[in-house]
Every structure is written in structure tokens, then in C-alpha cells.
Design a protein around this nucleic acid. Structure first.
Lengths: 195, 195
DNA sequence: CAAATTAAATAACGATCGTTACGGTAACGA
DNA sequence: TCGTTACCGTAACGATCGTTATTTAATTTG
């Protein structure tokens, strides 16, 4: 019963995601969000709750819609193919949209005022989740003999994440897809093998 | 002539640097800055100009006082030693101060509102400067036979910078010195050589 | 059709943002 | 000692921040 919602919630969330992607959590104002979504502030509040909740919804959407290459990567048969898939996916994702380059999770809230601490922690958790998935995949590869027994799988996962985060910083600084691919190539050149 | 300044400008700048280091450009308010420096707002304006000018002064100070390991690294005799020195220096710097972890230049303004665009560009320039110095050093190493002729020196420099930026993100996320050193080790694992 | 319920839109809330007038104070030159 | 100069601190500026009360419009239910 009652009046029907006149805007598409998913569509508004997508627009909000783009704003946060470009300006980060604190850098995005409700003026920006209403302009991008075409939805007035009270409607955003009624649909999503406050700014923090809207951002966390955008984070969920980002993970679901944009990070699909990660499960794909984890499904590769060798650890090197996993790493390559991750690095290519990151290079592509970080440069796919000229108007919001880099990574939503890195741009979102690296530093900021104390008020953004919950958001910062959520992004730290999101990064840790990806790193844990990689570490577990590398540990499996080690058990399968795909990686040397001497390999520090946790360090290898942290290294791969570091490269992707660095690529995200560079993408936000204006690096081209090709430049990021060159970074990926170099990272893969250091990959351990049993050969 | 006239009344003497009652605070130490360099000391206030150091305190402001710490605030920006921790909260970034936009995340740091004048309330934060006056609290940390012990200097009232009008005195900060008279000594440094506006917030943007103060931040740029802090950037200069950071480069001079905190990035001393970079010229040291460039002076190493092999490209691998250069890279190792850079990575160790970054791991140490990013975890030296618990109250403001990570890198000032990465934390400063990765994403943000449009008003922070000049600061963002200044930080991009600062990063590009470091990358150019590394590239030139690697090109010299290549001419000296320290690096293979097939090495893409620009890509190698970009890769090394990517790792340092990624380590900065991780440090800001709470990574320990040891965890960052492990990332550095992995990055150095198969540095290109002529051996 | 009338009552009830939900959303949209305007407009305003208090708080904080970066910035600056202004009046009082300390140190200089004459 | 007096006038000038520069700094200090209080307090306020207009603008914008995230958030919400309120009114109006649209839709459903009885």
C-alpha cells in the first residue's frame, strides 16, 4: 500500500557507486550523490539509510559486479595463472572507466577524518578478504606441488595484493592500461616456480 | 620590526605534517591542525598562507626529512641494491610512527572532492618524480651492464613504485614492519640480472 | 469515494568547514 | 616615551556538511 517508489534503487546505487569510486567516501557529498542519481536527499535516506550505509551498499555492489574476475582467477589451474588473471583483471578494471579510475576499495577511504573510521575498517576488511582467498589458493597450490615448499604463501599473497593496490594508485594518477599491464608483466616475471 | 612570532614555524610545520600524514589533506581540519601545532588558526594563516599552501609546505618537508633514503638508494652500486634499499626504506618509514602509518604522499589525497584537485596533482607529480629518478638509475644500470639489455627500465621503475605504493596502503591498513618486509622480499625474489 | 499509507520535494536544521575582521598586546625605531 | 608595526586570540563570516521535519502528491485499502 501507499505511493510507489519512482526511481530504480539499483540504478541509483550504481550512480552512487560511481561517485564514491571517483571521490571516495568523504569526498563525495550529497550534492554529488543527488546530482548523479537524480534522486533527492530524503529519498536516498529512505532507500538506503545514511551516507555510511549507502557507501557500504555500494561496496557490496562493487564486489559483486566489478570483482567477478577474482573467483575466475582463483579457479585457474596454476598459481601463476591465478596471479596473471588477477593482475590483468585489475589493470582492466582500474582503467575501464575514464571518469572514475583506480579501485573503489582503495580510493574509498585510505586516510580521512575520524568520522570515516568505520568505512576505513570496512575497506580494510574487504582487502583482507581478498588477500586471504589468495593465500588459501596458494597454499593449495603448494600442496599440489605447483609452488615450491619453501614459498611463503602469506607473503606471496600480500605481495600480489601490494602490486594491485599500487596499480590502483597509479591508475588514479592517470596511468594507462598499457602502463599497468607493464607493471603486471614485471610482477609476473618474479613469480616462483618449480621448473 | 614589530612583535616577534611566539611559536617555532618549523615545529608547527612538523606537527601539521603529522596531521596530514594521518588524515590526508581533506581529512585534516583546522581544529586538528591548531590542536596539534598549539597555534591558533590566524597564526597558521599568517605563517603559511591557506590550507593548500600549508599542505604543500608539509609535502616539501616530508620529501626533505623523510625521503632521505631515496638518494641513498640511488647511490647504491647495483640496480638490485637500489631496489632493496628503496623497499627496506619504505617498509621502515611506513611503520616507523604508529600514530601516522603509511606514506604521506599516498595518504594525502588519492581521491577527494574537486577542491583538492591541485593537491592531488602535486602528489601525482611527487610520485612521478621518484619514478623518473628510478627509471634513469635503471637506464644507467643497463648501460653499465648491470641490467639485461632486454629490460624495460620504465616498466621496472613503475613496478617498483607500485610495490611501494601497495606497501603504503597495507601499512595504513595496519600491516606490521615484518609483513611489509616480506612483501619487499617477494618483490626482490627474482630481480632481473645478467648472471 | 473516503481513509490510510507511502513517497517526493522543499526547506531548514545544527554543526563544522576554511577563512578572516577586529581589538588587544608585545617589540621595534625614533 | 611614543608611534609604528606585526603577532596573538576571540569571535565571527558565508558556505557547505550530513541529516531530517514538514508539506504535498500519489497509490492502496475499506
Amino acid at each position: 500500500m501507499g505511493r510507489r517508489r519512482e526511481f530504480d534503487v539499483e540504478q541509483a546505487l550504481e550512480a552512487a557507486l560511481c561517485v564514491f569510486w571517483r571521490k571516495g567516501y568523504e569526498g563525495a557529498s550529497y550534492n554529488d550523490l543527488t546530482r548523479a542519481t537524480g534522486v533527492e536527499r530524503p529519498a536516498l535516506y529512505s532507500a538506503f539509510g545514511n551516507k555510511e550505509a549507502l557507501f557500504l551498499r555500494a561496496l557490496e555492489r562493487y564486489e559483486e559486479q566489478q570483482l567477478g574476475f577474482l573467483p575466475e582467477a582463483l579457479a585457474q589451474s596454476t598459481s601463476r595463472d591465478v596471479a596473471e588473471h588477477v593482475l590483468r583483471g585489475v589493470a582492466e578494471l582500474n582503467t575501464r572507466h575514464p571518469e572514475h579510475s583506480g579501485c573503489f576499495i582503495v580510493n574509498g577511504a585510505l586516510a580521512g577524518s575520524d568520522e570515516s573510521e568505520p568505512v576505513r575498517q570496512a575497506l580494510i576488511t574487504a582487502r583482507a578478504k581478498g588477500e586471504a582467498q589468495l593465500r588459501e589458493r596458494f597454499e593449495r597450490a603448494q600442496q599440489e606441488g605447483d609452488l615450491p615448499a619453501t614459498t611463503n604463501c602469506a607473503a606471496l599473497a600480500a605481495f600480489l595484493m601490494a602490486v594491485t593496490h599500487g596499480m590502483a594508485v597509479q591508475a588514479k594518477s592517470g596511468f594507462s592500461r598499457e602502463a599497468l599491464d607493464a607493471v603486471a608483466d614485471q610482477a609476473l616475471a618474479t613469480w616462483p616456480t618449480n621448473a
